[in-house]
Every structure is written in structure tokens, then in C-alpha cells.
Simulated scan of single mutants.
Amino acid sequence: MQLRALLYFDELVRTNSMRAAAENLNVAPTAVSRQIENLEHFFGTALVERSNRGIKLTAAGELLAARAGRTFRELEHVHQLIDDLQGLQRGRVVIYANGATVANLLAPVLAQFSLRYPKLRFSVMITSARQAIEALAAAEADLVVTLFAPKMQGVKVRLRSEITYDLITWADHPAAGRPDIPLKEIAGLALALPDKSFGARQAFEEQFEKLGIDLDPVFVTGALEMLKELVLQKAAVTLLPALAVQREIEAGMMAAIPVAAGKGVRTTIDLCVAPDRQLSFAAGKLVDFIEGFMRGPSGRKPARTGSMSV
């Protein structure tokens, strides 16, 4: 079986048309058809069903399509590793992250890293935690950064660090100068929080429920920028990791007040890689850079683990 046949098949699956696949590959439709026939002969079964409406994959074709896509992604990864052996500092890193909060934490890291390695390119996909982990397993992602990640087998947690959610207010809010604030007092403030599909919101609900308090936020939104804007407009306060609004804090626009008595929501932020894939030069350097960023000026090292459920 030739790699060309798989390439033609992969393009046929992507376009769902012999003619469109041929145009994209710059060959005659008969060439695509011939390569598909070669594959069917090799596997001893039909892979596609042809009709005037296009093509439809058989069960065997569906199976091959899933594996072929991963095969090509792995070949691209091998190409990057070969480049690395030749000392070429170029390439692309695909990062999946869950939630706007994580994206906001990643942005300054990637900005600084890109200045250090200007030849590298980055794709950042914001999805749910489960979709991010599934993308890693399917070799669609090089790295995954998650909060409230689902438990899934076969994921290597490269680094782990704990973050705490503080009360985030505008700079001259009455609580802004205090060393901490009790949960009961927070419940009485005008709150802007994410909706209940978010892991952070579920954790907030659990914390307040222990005190017999029902959360009744004034604003509910899944957008981090909306949460921040509501605080800046002095319409509400919110609960976020201080790192997520570090720029606004440094600019004197916001303040972060810890929750009293250690009652703030804590969660781990995990950077995950696939246990059976060697990181490329670009991805490996980025992992090291993120670790340094998450360690912070205190020099505290995040927890490291091996392969585990996440």
C-alpha cells in the first residue's frame, strides 16, 4: 500500500467528492478513483459507496478514515522532529484550552514566548475540557491546558499548579483595601458569575451551599471579557484567579481580595501532553516556558506527575 493512496483517500473523505478531491490534488478524477480501488484491493473490502450525490463511506471506510487522519497528523509531527534534528527552530504548536479564564492565563505566556521564538507559529483552540483532552488523544493537539478537567485515562500531566479564585472588584470598591473578605459577605454583593455549565460556577455553588447560602448573581455570562467589563463599569464584582486580571490590577483598575479563612475555591491548572508522543522542539520549549511562568517569582515549583487520569 502506498502513502499516495492514503493521501487521496483522506482528501476524498474531506471533500466528499471525487471531482473536488481531484481538483485539490491537481490530478484527474480517474487517478483518485484508481487509488481508492488500490486501497480496496489491499484491504479486501469496499471503502466507499459511489452515487450521483457523491460518496458515502462504508463501515470499513469510516474506520480507515479515522486512522488515516491520525496517521497524517503523526507524519506531520515526525516531519517536525526531523526539522528539530537539523536544528531548525520553526514549527507550529497546537494548543487546546478550556474556558476563557485559561485563555487569559495563556495569552501573556504565548506573547512572551513568541517574542523569544519569532519563527514559531501557534494555534489556540478554546473548547470544553473534555473536547480538549479528546483532541490530545486524537493527536489533534500538542498541548492541553485545563481547569476542572474530566477524568480520562492515558493523559500525561506534564505540570500542575494550584490557583485560587479571589473576589475581583474595581479599584476603589469599599472592600478593595481589605486583607480578606468572608464568603457570607460576598454573597450579599452584586455578583457577576459564569453559568452553571462551568466547573468554576459549580465549585462556587458547592462552597456557598456548605454555608447554607443560595447564590443569586445579578449577571450570568460565559464570557470572561463580559465579567471583567461589568467590574470595570462598577456594576458587579466577580470571582476569578488574580492572574486572569493581572494586567488590570497592575494598571490600578481592579483589585483582588482573598476569601477569608481559606474558603476560596481552589483548583489545579494542568498542562497535559500525550504519553506516547515525543514533543517537538517548539512544543517542548513552550512546556518549559509555561512551567517557568506558572512557578512565578517565588520560585515555587508546580507539582509534576506521570501518566494518570485527568
Rank of each mutant, 00 (worst) to 15 (best):
I95T: 08
L106E: 04
R121H: 14
I133M: 13
R160C: 06
A100D: 11
T71P: 00
L85N: 13
Y96R: 01
M125H: 15
A137R: 15
V94K: 06
K119H: 14
S161Q: 07
K151E: 14
P108D: 07
T101W: 02
D83A: 13
E134V: 14
R158Q: 11
I133A: 15
M152P: 01
L115F: 07
L143P: 12
E74F: 07
I95W: 03
Q86Y: 12
A107L: 12
A103R: 09
I133P: 00
A107D: 12
F148H: 12
A129D: 08
L88H: 10
L120C: 05
T127K: 10
K151Y: 09
Q131R: 11
A111R: 13
A111D: 14
V109S: 12
L81D: 00
E76S: 12
K119L: 15
Y96I: 00
G91R: 01
V102M: 06
F122V: 13
L106P: 02
L120P: 02
L88N: 10
I95K: 04
L136K: 01
K119T: 14
Y117H: 15
V78M: 09
Q153Y: 11
N98E: 03
R130P: 01
Q153D: 11
R70N: 11
R130S: 12
V94N: 08
S114V: 08
G91W: 01
L147G: 11
K151I: 10
G91C: 12
Q89G: 06
L106D: 07
Q86M: 08
K151P: 05
L88C: 03
Q86F: 11
T127P: 00
